[in-house]
């Protein structure tokens, strides 16, 4: 075996690399959605926010020459959409699910419309950190060429865990999400908390989008998202509203997503449609195996209703 071919070892390596590369947007969007849902609201519109963030991040990176400014702008664009969602859903009897879906349409529309002139220009991408410097194997070096946002995402998962469970603000957020009456009795500003939580969720979803356009795959196009924003909502339920679980779910999902191409790479060439569906099959299998008859919604915040 020569130095440039590593044979079947490529499989675990591709899954590792895939977990790192593919999962980052899932981490951001799912943790963003988790924060929003912890306040008792659901924002189904993150797919639109993600696209808007991807476009805005790319645009600002291109115009300013600074990809990090692009990431920040993507976050701010997402936050603006989160604010819109939060505000509109504060009107009594407005259905948050329906507003979310409408915002997918609006966000995607704006992103495509404003993004037309951005398809051709090349924006400076986010730099990555060469963590594979110790290895002489180019494949290892490539797999460990990690974008800084990946680490931000991991840190975020733990920070959100600490925030929710160890801080007063976190307690307030959880109380608002679990029982509006209790929150009011305690004098918490329910609406303000929810709007801020939705803005935070939008901010993170926007950043997740900018990862797609500025890092991996790393350019702006209308086919950029393959439903990451919608899937994130499912990942939050899968993670049972726990941020560390959401991180794990995103990593699992990213790694499984790399399975299809990697298997073909090592010569398992049939059934690729089914292998490419591995992330979905695996997630469903784990859910079926790990849940019980008890309650499909047991860990959900009390005020959270998908259906109203």
């Amino acid at each position: 075996m020569d130095a440039t071919s590593i044979g079947w070892l490529a499989l675990p390596l591709a899954i590792l690399g895939g977990a790192i590369r593919v999962s980052t947007p899932f981490i951001f969007v799912s943790i963003g959605e988790l924060i929003t849902e912890k306040s008792g609201r659901i924002n189904l519109g993150l797919e639109g926010t993600l696209m808007l963030g991807a476009m805005a991040g790319y645009a600002i990176s291109y115009l300013s020459g600074s990809p990090w400014l692009g990431v920040l702008s993507a976050g701010l664009a997402g936050m603006a959409f989160g604010f819109l969602h939060g505000l509109l859903c504060s009107v009594k009897r407005v259905n948050d699910t329906a507003i979310g879906i409408s915002l997918i349409v609006l966000g995607t529309g704006l992103a495509f419309f404003l993004g037309k002139p951005l398809i051709e220009p090349k924006a400076p991408p986010l730099p990555s950190i060469a963590l594979g410097f110790w290895s002489s194997v180019p494949q290892v070096r490539a797999a460990l060429d990690v974008n800084a946002l990946f680490f931000v995402g991991i840190a975020l998962a733990f920070a959100v865990y600490v925030f929710l469970n160890r801080t007063g603000c976190g307690l307030m957020l959880r109380t608002v999400g679990d029982s509006e009456d209790a929150a009011r009795a305690l004098g918490f500003p329910v609406l303000r908390v929810r709007i801020i939580a939705t803005m935070a969720g939008g901010f993170l979803a926007g950043i997740g989008g900018s990862f797609l356009s500025l890092s991996y795959p790393g350019s702006w196009s209308e086919g950029l998202s393959s439903g990451q924003g919608i899937m994130a909502v499912a990942l939050v339920i899968f993670a049972r509203w726990r941020s560390i679980n959401a991180l794990g779910a995103s990593l699992l999902f990213g790694g499984a997503g790399a399975l299809g191409p990697a298997l073909q790479g090592i010569g398992v060439t049939g059934y690729y449609y089914l292998f490419n569906a591995a992330p979905y099959i695996l997630t469903l299998a784990i859910m079926v195996a790990s849940t019980s008859r008890a309650a499909p919604f047991a860990d959900a915040p009390g005020e959270l209703k998908l259906h109203r």
């Binding site: 690399g17 590369r21 997503g257 191409p261």
Partner: peptide, 21 residues
């Protein structure tokens, strides 16, 4: 890749091919 436009999977496939030499 299984479909006409799938950016993330196309990027993964490219990485796999480069990894394979």
């Amino acid at each position: 890749t299984g479909d006409w436009v799938l950016p993330v999977r196309e990027a993964e496939a490219t990485n796999t091919l480069v990894d394979q030499g």
